[in-house]
């Protein structure tokens, strides 16, 4: 699974939970740039990713996530 594929699978989930149909994902995209990136929406995104990719995030992985780039890094480690 390459990085681009991971981004492509996360993108529709991110658009749905952040309610931004036109959202374009890039590595540096973070909560400060998306007004609907709330704690609740982020929890929903994590839940959808766990379901889609079939793994559970570890607590130590979650603290590394600062933006889409680091989120993709963590997903790719599984």
């Amino acid at each position: 699974m390459d990085r681009k594929e991971v981004v492509n699978r996360i993108a529709p989930m991110a658009r749905e939970v952040f309610e931004k149909p036109d959202l374009e994902l890039c590595d540096t995209l973070d909560a400060t740039q998306v007004d609907t990136w709330t704690s609740f929406a982020f929890m929903q995104l994590l839940g959808k990713i766990e379901e889609e990719f079939g793994f559970r995030f570890k607590m130590m992985e979650l603290i590394k996530i600062q933006n889409i780039g680091t989120l993709v890094d963590v997903v790719m480690q599984h």
Binding site: D30, A31, W37, T38, S39, A41, F42, M43, L46, M59, L62, I63, I65, Q66
Partner: peptide, 8 residues
């Protein structure tokens, strides 16, 4: 906000 620290 939105970092998941609550979950952690």
């Amino acid at each position: 906000e939105g970092r998941g620290f609550g979950l952690v």
